[in-house]
C-alpha cells in the first residue's frame, strides 16, 4: 500500500548539533506510528519540520503526493496535518468551548465579507460547530468542562482538549507530542482509548511518547531514533527488545 506520508532524507542542524540526520520514514494511512528516543534525539524537531514550523536544511516530505516543505504551517494544518505541543499550547484565558470552536476550518464567520453583510451563515455554522464540540467533549467524558477556562482544567484535561482541537480542525493526520506524559492513569486510559479508535475514522496518528506501556498499547509501528537518526523501525515488540533501545532506556 502506498504510504500517506513519505519522509525522505531530512537533515536539520542547530549550530553544530545534529537534530535530524538523513531521517526517512514511510507512514501508512490510518495507522498509529510511535516515535521513541532519548531527550534530544530530534523527535520534536521532526514534528516541527513536518508541520512547517521549522524549515529543514534538506530533504523531502510528501503528503498525499504533495510536497510539504516550503509550505507555511497554517496551510499544512489546512491540508489536514494538525499537531499538539509538548509544552501544551492552548488559549488558557479562554473557555474550552472557545478553544475547540477556534480549531474548526473554513469558518464563514472568519471571512470579513460575511461579517459586513451580517450573513446568517455565521450563526448556522457556529451552532453546528458547537454541537460537534459537545459531541467531542462527550467522547472524552468532559462535557461538564465546556464553559470552564482552560487554565482551570487539570493537566490531563488540557491534554484532552488539545487532542480534541486537532479533531475539530478536521485532521486527517494528527501528530501528538507526548499525549499522556504527566497524566494520571485513569485519564491515560481514556486518552489512549480515543487514540486507538482514530484509524477507524480514517485518521493517521504519529505520536511521541516516553511511556513504553502506552506505546505498546496503541502503536502499529514503532520508530526508535537517536541523535537525529532512525536506529530501528518495525513491530513495537521487536523494537522494544532491540539491544540499542534497551540500552537507551536503561541508562
Amino acid at each position: 500500500m502506498k504510504p500517506i506520508l513519505y519522509i525522505e532524507n531530512l537533515n536539520k542542524r542547530f549550530d553544530g548539533t545534529v537534530a535530524l540526520d538523513n531521517f526517512s520514514l514511510k507512514v501508512q494511512g490510518a495507522s498509529i506510528t510511535g516515535i521513541i528516543g532519548p531527550n534530544g534525539a530530534g523527535k520534536t524537531t521532526l514534528f516541527n519540520v513536518i508541520t512547517g514550523f521549522l524549515p529543514p536544511d534538506s530533504g523531502s516530505i510528501q503528503y498525499n503526493d504533495q510536497q510539504l516543505i516550503g509550505l507555511p504551517s497554517y496551510k499544512i494544518a489546512r491540508d489536514g496535518i494538525v499537531r499538539t505541543f509538548q509544552q501544551l499550547r492552548l488559549i488558557t484565558r479562554l473557555t474550552v468551548l472557545d478553544n475547540i470552536l477556534l480549531a474548526f476550518q473554513n469558518q464563514a464567520g472568519e471571512r470579513l465579507r460575511n461579517i459586513f453583510t451580517f450573513s446568517r451563515l455565521i450563526k448556522i455554522q457556529e451552532q453546528a460547530n458547537r454541537k460537534k464540540t459537545q459531541e467531542l467533549l462527550d467522547s472524552l467524558e468532559i462535557r461538564d468542562k465546556e464553559n470552564a477556562l482552560v487554565e482551570d482544567l487539570s493537566y490531563g484535561q488540557q491534554k484532552m482538549v488539545s487532542l480534541l482541537c486537532c479533531l475539530a480542525a478536521g485532521a486527517k493526520m494528527v501528530l501528538l507530542d507526548e499525549p499522556v506524559a504527566g497524566v494520571n492513569p485513569e485519564t491515560i486510559n481514556i486518552i489512549l482509548e480515543m487514540i486507538r479508535k482514530l484509524p477507524e475514522q480514517g485518521v493517521t496518528v504519529i505520536l511521541i511518547e516516553h511511556n513504553m506501556d502506552a506505546i505498546m498499547r496503541v502503536c502499529d509501528n514503532l520508530v526508535f531514533m537517536d541523535q537525529g537518526k532512525k536506529i530501528v523501525e518495525g513491530d513495537p515488540e521487536m523494537v522494544r527488545n532491540n539491544p540499542a533501545v534497551i540500552e537507551a532506556y536503561l541508562e
Binding site: 497554517y74 505541543f85 499550547r89 477556534l102
Partner: peptide
Amino acid sequence: LRIGHSPFGRVLKAIREDEIFSQAHGKNI
C-alpha cells in the same frame, strides 16, 4: 461588536494569546 463576537474576533484573541497555536490550527495570522 460584530467583529469582536464573531469567529473572526475569536481568531484575533487567539493571535493575542498564542500565535503558534493559531497557526497550528490553520489560521493565516
